[in-house]
Computed example of a mutant assay.
Amino acid sequence: MNITYTICNRTTLPHALTLADSVQKFQPGSVFYLCWVDNAALPELPANIRVINITEVAIQDWDKMVSRYFDFELLAACRPWVAQFILKENANCQTLTFLAPTVVLFQSTETILDNENDIFLTPNILKPLTPSSYLDDKRILNIGMFHSGSWTLRNNEKVRDTLTWWANRTLDRATYDLCNGMNMDQLWLNYIPVLLPKTKIIRHSGWHFGLQAVLNKDLSLSAGKYLVDNQPLISVDFAGLTIFDPIWSNHYGLINKNNLFKNLLGYYEKSLAGYKHLVPTGNAPIPGKVADIKKYRIVRNNLAGKLKTITTYIDQF
């Protein structure tokens, strides 16, 4: 059995359902799990989706995690815990894939997996970034070499032990605090190639196209098929483009670097709109601290950067 799962709350429910559609289309043999991290009642979902409520996972110190983390941090901190739960409930699972709700498949993942490795990681970049005012190599180094929104693992003892190691660290070390060496669950992935020698870094150009790839990869359309550096497009991550993302929302402007990517975003937004009626309403709180995200935060950050440049110039001269 091959399993794909995602984790969401009401903010990302339309994204998770759009992801589920793409998994059903391109991975019809894969079982799809949705873990619900929300106090609101989840409406009835399509039959192809198996639902896990986060309370079923029985994470130790769950109440402390809820009080410690913002809601978006909490979703990330749950990822290794839910992976453990799924493997315990499905002993016959051979491969387990996590995809963030903002991911959409465009092809099967069979071409990028093999039977020789224990875990498959998604690198943020595969070569030095083209110089840009939006994003640089140091920023990638700061947030982590591997993208935690997309990975696949084999179900064996060594991998399960590594999951336990990872999960124990997201109990209290999964905040978004780059200055203190934390980036939710993501920076811990830097250790994986050391802990699991049979780690494969996915190098297919068409895998996980997103804002991190716009500067270095060419998304094109040929004979009705999307290509990335002349290889078939397999997946896209729209992180930072439709909802707040602590990392990628700061780089929203990169969407203008490729018109086809903008077109794909338009189609994606239409898919999300088709599921908005399923989003629960009411006063039930979302677990985790409420993040007060200002509407014009990107404009404000850009203005602050320009003012800092001016004050630095004045200080120098």
Rank of each mutant, 00 (worst) to 15 (best):
L215K: 04
N216M: 02
P197N: 11
N216C: 05
L215Q: 03
T242D: 10
Q231L: 08
W248C: 01
G266I: 12
H204A: 00
A273Y: 03
L211C: 04
G224R: 10
G253V: 11
S235C: 08
K257V: 04
D229L: 02
V194C: 14
K270S: 14
T199G: 04
L196Y: 05
D218N: 06
F244K: 07
Y226R: 06
G240W: 00
G240D: 07
S222H: 13
L211E: 00
I255K: 09
I201R: 09
Y275N: 11
G266P: 08
K198G: 08
K225C: 09
L278M: 15
V279A: 03
G206R: 00
Y268D: 06
V228C: 05
W248R: 02
P246L: 05
I243R: 13
R203L: 12
N216S: 15
F261L: 00
N258R: 11
G274K: 05
S220G: 01
P232M: 07
N263C: 13
Y267E: 13
G253F: 00
S271N: 11
N256W: 09
D218V: 10
S249M: 09
S205D: 09
H251A: 08
L254R: 09
L265T: 04
V236T: 05
N256C: 13
L264D: 06
L215P: 01
K217I: 00
K225V: 05
E269S: 12
T199H: 10
S249W: 05
A239C: 12
G274C: 09
K257W: 00
G240S: 15
Q231E: 11
L272K: 02
W207E: 03
W248S: 03
A223T: 14
L233W: 00
T242N: 07
P246Q: 08
